[in-house]
Design a protein around this nucleic acid. Structure first.
Lengths: 359, 359
DNA sequence: TTGAAAGCGCTAACAA
DNA sequence: TTGTTAGCGCTTTCAA
């Protein structure tokens, strides 16, 4: 479950076997109940196929011993682990924690466990997760906003395990949960244009990411329709994290005031917050001197001063939908290509960080 | 792993076996290399015990097939899962995400994987994690700030699996990582007293938690030494979460201004932030009208307006230390009782949310 | 309705 | 240095 990181343990040499003295085996339960192990197994798996009297004896023995079937044995026998692996770029971005909530809920409803593969923002960590999957450690994979890496022939996509991608389009036949990022970006532009802004700034996400591409396409497209070309936009490269929002603020402060935009769209709330909090001590007040818009709608966007105008993503729903896809795939269902991509709406939440431009 | 939730999968009835078509078994590698399965296993586990020539053939076959040993089989055989279970109250509190970073790092250095058991603030969810542990799903447990639940005879403590408790003292022989919360609470009181405050407020953590008890003991103790009794402190019950900080603010606003404290210590940053952001629209400015102190030192405490005075916990170090304990215990080492409790310091970080009381 | 037995994939003791 | 073999704990035919 999580790494958090679900990584395949390195092979270890001999070591003193840990206690585990308590482990009750099915044979002991069977002996206590005076039945075979098969009957114990059956009693637990399909109680109605066992005579009531026998069942009672077995269940009594189970209770008395505190027997819990061994997971490794079960997985080995069943050729399934009962676990879904969710790969997250990191856990410090609240966005992902929120998503996991939805995933977790949906998985537990289906009796599935959740293994969190935390990349700690190091995509190469995916390597160990690939090993995990090839080792049969998970029956399905949800990948949140990340590229599918790996050598040809040894990537998550060709592990033979069902795959659901969230916020990243894939060429494989993985199921996909996407958000209408483009519409979100356009809504931001329209909101700002409506307030009277004509000079814009933009803090990007990671350069080649899908969501960055879409948000920019929506934003710049809407600006273009109002006659503002992309070259007129003050741009800074970011990576969704706080630090790059702070960097963008410093870059802005180093720019002659006359060349400033009157509104900046930072494509994550974290960057927008970094921007606002760094500009404040420099005497730049939002929205008086500059309007700022974020993206994601994390809880902290409600707590900034001023409260952040942002685009809310349906995080929990995204998580639930992804898990839903996965459960269907893991159950052997084939989802027709036409239904394999789910697009969810996001919505502009207008708050106090945007206002008409300074005169 | 993490669920996030590492939960034991419910037993499922027969279902169509999922693809997993790709799974290579050791027998196929052995056949390709023209050796026995034992030799393949040995080549991977102890290459130097195998003749160079054989080793090359085996490794070539491993590469050619993309063979990865099956985890379930390995766990079953080795009687160990190679996983540590970390139980967190929730993942939306950044404090826990930070701690997990330290845990994860230390675990991976030891070749261990990490299973996150996310309780989603529902302690009763621990039940399924207990099942997981009794099923041999983890070789060790780290429990972050949570009670050890379960029926007698069936709790994490008597699973026979090594246990490390963080920020919660246990009566069992579990290893413990504790923070000098009491000193932290006292430092807050002294700081505020030094600024000239004499009328205090306090927003608690969950009533019976250890850390709440300690922080209050330190805070009230230091006040008492300055002649301020606990009954003179305006108190509100909280639970560390944002919402209860907001509630405390509303309660304060409903109190006659004359009865207000001039400084409030909220024993988590989230509550302090809730307090500040709720008071602001009501015209109560921090620290002009009221000083506020938090506890934890999460990243967002640097981003509030004003920047929050808080007590920093060494979160990553706490995580690393807990994992370090666990690795020693899982390796079969017996840690003498005298070394089994590690106490770490926390430190007051003074920022802009505290000032002299209004006149 | 129940039991005997095979076998999931792997590793380690033992034998050669 | 390598192979044979047993067995980790469980479930599921198949037979009784």
């Amino acid at each position: 479950m999580s790494s958090s990181s679900a990584e395949i343990p390195a092979r270890r040499r001999q070591r003193s076997r840990p206690s585990r003295a308590t482990a009750i085996r099915i044979t002991e339960v069977a002996a206590m109940a005076g039945v075979s192990t098969a009957t114990v197994s059956r009693t637990l798996a399909a109680p109605d196929t066992v005579k009531a009297e026998t069942r009672d004896r077995v269940l009594a023995a189970v209770r008395a011993t505190g027997y819990t079937p061994n997971l490794a044995a079960r997985s080995l026998r069943a050729q399934r682990s009962g676990l879904a692996l969710v790969i997250v770029p990191n856990l410090i971005t609240p966005f992902f924690a929120d998503l996991l909530l939805g995933v977790d809920q949906a998985l537990s409803e289906h009796g599935y466990g959740l293994l969190i593969g935390n990349l700690h923002d190091r995509p190469e960590k995916q390597e160990r997760l690939i090993d995990l999957v090839f080792a049969g450690g998970a029956d399905g994979i949800i990948i949140l906003d990340g590229r599918i890496l790996g050598r040809p022939g040894r990537s998550l996509a060709d592990s033979g395990v069902p795959l659901v991608a969230v916020s990243v389009p894939t060429t494989t036949d993985a199921a996909q949960v996407l958000v209408r990022e483009r519409e979100g970006g356009a809504a931001v532009a329209e909101h700002l244009l409506g307030l009277g802004h004509r000079r814009f700034g933009y803090v990007t996400g990671p350069p080649h990411s899908h969501i960055e591409h879409e948000r920019w396409a929506g934003f710049s497209g809407a600006l273009a329709r109002s006659g503002i070309g992309p070259e007129a936009v003050w741009r800074r490269v970011g990576n969704f994290h706080l630090e790059t929002g702070i960097e963008a603020a410093h870059a802005l402060l180093a720019t002659p005031r006359g060349a400033w935009p009157t509104a900046i769209f930072a494509v994550s709330d974290m960057m927008a917050i970094g921007l606002i909090t760094t500009l404040r001590p420099a005497g730049v007040l939002v929205p008086r001197d500059l309007s700022v818009v974020g993206f994601d709608g994390i809880a902290f966007a409600d707590l900034t001063e001023p409260v952040l105008t942002t685009v809310r993503q349906p995080r929990e729903e995204m998580g639930r939908a992804a898990a839903g896809f996965l459960m269907r795939l893991a159950a052997g269902e084939t989802i027709p290509a036409s239904e394999r991509v789910l697009r969810l709406d996001c919505s502009l939440r207008i708050a106090a960080s945007t206002a008409a431009p300074p005169i």
